[in-house]
Design a protein around this nucleic acid. Structure first.
Lengths: 214, 214, 214, 214
DNA sequence: CATGAATGAGTGTTCATTCAT
DNA sequence: TATGAATGAACACTCATTCAT
C-alpha cells in the first residue's frame, strides 16, 4: 500500500500532513477527472483518459496519489461539494425567511451550472455511477443521506414554525433533489439550456408547493 | 412472476412453436438482465453475470439472441416501458380531470415499485448508464424526450383549459420526472421505503404546486 | 495509455533509454509476430500465440505496445520492407544497366530467403491476409501499388531508352511480383528449396522476356 | 460423424451415392461460399455469412452437409477447378504447337475472369488462406503440386522436342502460376481491370521468355 | 432429412493496479 | 517522489460444431 490516506483533507490543518506539490498534483488530477467525467460519463472515465487530460504520461501517477478509483471519486465528489457549498451557502444565508432561503437554495444551485459547468454534472455522474459493495458507495449514500437529513430537518423546523404549509418534508426534499439532478443532466446535453430561468421556475414551483395556504 | 412471451400468440401452427421458444429465451434473458441491473447497477451488469443469473452456461448465448449489449438494453427498457404503460395507463385514464390524472400518474408510477420492485430501478440504471455516441444512447434520449414532450403538451393543454394554475409546464414535468426517479433509486436501497405513502405525498406536493389559485 | 510512436530513435540523452526499452519490446514483439505468422499463417496468428512466442505472459502486453492488430501488422510489414530495402538496394544500385539491375533485383530478393527465412513469408502472408475495410488494408494496397508503380515507371523509362525490348511494363512488373511471391510461399513449405538457384533461373526467365531483340 | 464423405464426387457414378436434393443443397452451398469468399475473403467467410448468402436459416445446415469447414473449402476448390478445366482444356487442346498451347493456357485462364468473375478469386483466397496442419491444407498443396508437376513435365517434354528455348521448366511454371494469381487478385480489386488485354500481354511476355532463340 | 437452439473455446481490447528502478 | 513497463482479469463478441427433436 503506497498511496496516502485520503479522508483527512478538510479540518484544521489541511496542508500539514502532505506536501504542497502532492496537494497540487491531487488537485490537478481531481480537476482532470471532473473534466473527463463530465465529458464521457463515469463509466468511460478511465485512468488513462484522466491522466491524458491532466497531462500526465502514465496512469501510475494517479494510482500513486490515490488509493484507488474509489478514492479519486470520493475526492471528486468532495471537491464539487466544497465548491457548491462555498457558492450556495452565502447566497442562502443572505435571506432570513425559510421560503426565501428555499428559493435561494434552488436558484443558487442552478446558477452553479453557469459558474462551473462541469462540476455538478460530474458529481451526479459519480453518484449514480458508483454502485454496489464498494466502500465509497456506502460512504456516498451515507454522506448524501446526511445532507438530505439536514435539509429535511431544517424544512421541518421552518414548517413547524409556520413558515411553510402542510407537506411531508422528506418527500419534498427528495423530490427537490431529484428535480435539480434531472435539470443538471438536462443542462449537460442541451446547449440552449437556460439555467437561471429554470432555476427561477423551479423555485416558483416549489414555492407554490410549500407555501402556507391562506 | 411475469409473462414470458410478449403478445403475438397466434394459432397452433408448428411455426409458432419455434417463435415461442425464441421469444421465451429472449424474455428469460431480459428478465435476468433486469434482475442483475437492479442488483449491481448498469456498469457491472456484464453478460457473464446476466448469463449466470439466467442459468445459461455461456455469454455466447446472449450474443446469440441479441445483436449486442445495446440491443439487450433496448429490450430491457422496452419491457419496462411496456409493463409500466400497461399498469399506469388504465389507472390514469380512469380519471377525468387533469389534476386527478396527474395524481393517478404519480401514484400509479410509485405503486409499480411494489408490483415490479426491480423494473423501474433497472430502467433508471440503464437510462443513466448508457452514454455517449452509442446508437441506443441517442435512441433512449430521443424516446425519453418524446415522452416528456407528450406529457408537457398534455399539461399545457390542461393548463390553458384552466385546469391548472400558473407554472411552466416543461419545468414542472422535468421536476416530476426527476423526483420520481430519485424516489425509485431511494426505494432500491431502503428496505423500509413505503412506495404508496411516498406516492401519495409526492402527488400532494405536485397537486399543491399546480393547483389553480382561488 | 496507447502505443508510442515508433521511428524516433534520437541521441544519447537519458530519455533515449526509456525509448530504447520501449523500442526493444516493440521489436521483440514484431520479431515474434514474424515468426508466428510465417509458421501458422496470418489467420491463425493470434495475439495469444504471438505473446507466447515472445515470452510474454499476456496478450494485454501487445495491446499495450501497439494500438491494435492492424498496427502490429503495419509494423511487421514495415520491418520486412526495411530489411528488404537495406539488403536489396545496394545490390541493385551496384549495377549500371537496366537488365543488370533487374537481375540484381530478382536475385537479391530471392537471396533474402536465405538471410531472413521468415521475413518475406510473413510479409506475403500479411499482405494477402489483411482484407476488407480495415485502415491498414487500404494502406497496404496503397503502399504496394505505389511501390509497383515506381518499378513500372523505372522499367518504362529504361525501355524507352532502348535498354529493354517491347513488352508492357505494368504486366511485366505484376507478373514478376506474383512470380517472386509464389516462390516465397514455395520456399516456405519446401525444405529443399534452393533460393539462389531459383533466383538465377527466374532472372534468366525475365531477362529473356525483356531483352532487346536483335 | 454425420456428414457424408466428400472426396468421391467425380468418377463414373457422380450422383449414385447421394440423393439429388442432397447434391443440389451441396452445390447451392458451394456457390454461396464462392460468392462470399470472393466478397469478404477467406478469413471472414464464416458459416453464418455463407448460410445467409445461400438463403439458409442456420449454419447447422452447412455442418450437416459438409464434414467441416475444410471439407467445404475442398469442395469450393474442386468446383472452381472443374469449371476452369471445362473452360480452358478445349481452348488449349485446340492448338497443336506448345507455344500456342501455352498462350491458350494463359489467355483462357485470364478469360475466365470475365466468365466467372468470382471463381478464381475465391480459389486463390482459399489456397492462400487455408494453412497449417489441417488435412485439407496438405491435400491442397498436394493437388496443386501435382497439377504444376503435370504442367512442368509437359513443358519439359515440349522443350526437349525443341518447341521451346532454354529455361528451367519448373521455375517457369511456378512463375507463371504466381503471375496469373497476382493478376487474379488485382482483377478482384480493380474494376477497370481488362482481363483479356492482360492475358494477351502476359502471354506475350511468357512467349518471349520461352521462345526458341534463332 | 432438416432444424434451430445451444455450446465453449477463442478473438482483440481495456482496465485498475503493481513494482522495480 | 515519480515513472513507465508489466500484469492478469474481465469485457463483449464470433465462431465452427453439436444434438435433441
Amino acid at each position: 500500500m503506497r498511496a496516502k490516506n485520503s479522508g483527512s483533507k478538510q479540518g484544521a490543518a489541511p496542508a500539514a500532513d502532505r506536501t504542497f506539490t502532492e496537494a497540487a498534483r491531487r488537485a490537478q488530477i481531481v480537476d482532470a477527472a471532473i473534466e473527463v467525467i463530465a465529458e464521457v460519463g463515469y463509466a468511460k472515465a478511465s485512468f488513462s483518459r484522466i491522466a491524458r487530460q491532466a497531462g500526465l504520461s502514465s496512469t501510475g501517477m494517479i494510482s500513486y496519489h490515490f488509493a484507488g478509483k474509489d478514492d479519486l471519486m470520493r475526492e471528486v465528489v468532495a471537491e464539487v461539494m466544497r465548491v457548491a457549498d462555498a457558492y450556495m451557502r452565502p447566497r442562502i444565508e443572505a435571506h432570513a425567511t425559510a421560503p426565501e432561503r428555499l428559493r435561494a437554495h434552488i436558484e443558487s444551485n442552478l446558477a452553479l451550472l453557469d459558474v462551473y459547468p462541469k462540476h455538478l454534472h460530474a458529481m451526479v455522474e459519480v453518484l449514480t455511477g458508483v454502485r454496489g459493495e464498494s466502500p465509497s458507495a456506502r460512504e456516498f449514500t451515507a454522506a448524501t443521506d446526511a445532507m438530505l437529513d439536514t435539509l429535511i430537518n431544517a424544512v421541518r423546523t421552518a414548517q413547524e414554525a409556520g413558515e411553510f404549509g402542510e407537506f411531508d418534508p422528506a418527500t419534498m426534499v427528495y423530490a427537490l433533489r431529484g428535480a435539480i439532478d434531472a435539470l443538471v443532466m438536462r443542462a449537460a446535453h442541451d446547449p440552449d439550456f437556460d439555467a437561471a430561468a429554470h432555476g427561477r421556475r423551479l423555485a416558483d414551483l416549489f414555492d407554490r408547493a410549500t407555501r402556507r395556504t391562506p
